[in-house]
């Protein structure tokens, strides 16, 4: 005798209806969200990786915001130094003119006044602020870095010799400032000192050639110092393209982790739909199946 089967087919049929409807549901959810992992349990490893992926993406965005703020600051600093270079070039030609023996004492004094104006202008440039903070005061950004004695023309530095370092991508930092004394009162060529000496020399008529050569060495020293900003700008530009690429990679990784392959999902969906319809039609037939009783009447 054969094994007696469960005469009630309904539980099996209901289970398969449930299964195919569940598949349909999953496919619909994946289609509408575009993701295969909609809950941590769908793919626990991907869910954990997504946390780190989103964190890295958000860090990168912050680095990019830092970079754009630094770019602004560096551009202001660099153009300020350009202005100082122009001032020095002007001072150099005034000095050369004053050093000429044919210039009268009165004319020399007039030139001296002009140089004094240049000195004031330079100090003004050295006191440049960016977003309320002094650019050239070291880390002392809330106090004016340079003041000038109005009678002697001697400049005093109130800042400090400290630099700050800012991270512009993971583990990669740059120096974000050059202290004012290093820029404008460098021992190898002091911008403010040279201008002061030139002013004194023009006033007195003494030491003119020395004063002019001081301006020259200040000019070349400023060029050396300014390279720091140029390099920093290059470095953050490199970082910027690295970060953009990294964000692209991260978003691709995110897509691999949880993104749904739409063609696969769409075919899953139609398969589930087909299976569901087949089960439903089978169920309806089973439910309306005739029994022996129908034939006995």
């Amino acid at each position: 005798m054969s094994v007696r089967l469960n005469p009630d087919l309904l539980p099996d049929l209901l289970a398969s209806i449930q299964k195919s409807e569940q598949n349909e549901n999953i496919a619909t959810q994946e289609l509408s969200s575009g993701r295969t992992a909609n809950s941590p349990s769908d793919n626990p490893a991907a869910a954990a990786a997504i946390v780190l992926n989103h964190d890295q993406t958000s860090q990168d965005s912050q680095f990019l915001r830092n970079i754009s703020a630094l770019q602004g600051r560096f551009q202001v600093a660099d153009s300020t130094i350009s202005n100082v270079v122009e001032v020095l070039t002007q001072a150099l030609s005034l000095g050369t003119e004053g050093a000429n023996g044919t210039v009268s004492a009165t004319d020399r004094q007039a030139i001296a006044t002009e140089v004094q104006g240049l000195l004031t202008q330079t100090v003004g440039l050295a006191n440049t602020t960016y977003q309320g903070a002094y650019l050239f005061g070291g880390t002392n950004v809330n106090a004016q870095p340079f003041t000038v004695d109005s009678t002697t023309g001697a400049a005093t530095y109130h800042g400090n010799p400290n630099t700050t370092s800012v991270e512009i991508s993971n583990g990669n930092s740059i120096t974000a400032n050059v202290p004012g004394d290093q820029l404008f009162q460098n021992a190898n060529g002091s911008v403010l000192g040279a201008l002061q000496d030139l002013y004194t020399a023009l006033n007195t008529g003494n030491n003119m050639p020395t004063a002019v050569s001081e301006v020259q060495s200040a000019l070349s020293q400023l060029d050396v110092q300014r390279v720091t900003y140029g390099n920093a700008l290059n470095q953050i530009n490199l970082s910027e393209s690295f970060l953009n690429q990294d964000q692209l990679n991260l978003s691709q990784q995110e897509n691999t982790l949880e993104g749904a392959d739409l063609s696969v999902v769409a075919s899953n969906f139609s398969q589930a739909q087909l299976a569901d319809q087949a089960t439903l039609s089978a169920t309806s037939r089973v439910l309306s199946q005739k029994t022996l009783l129908d034939y006995l009447a």
Binding site: S39, P40, S41, D42, N43, P44, A45, A47, A48, A49, V51, L52
Partner: peptide
């Protein structure tokens, strides 16, 4: 935190 998320998802899964 990422490990915590993994554990929760894994238990349910």
């Amino acid at each position: 935190y990422s490990d915590t998320v993994f554990k929760i998802g894994n238990d349910v899964s």
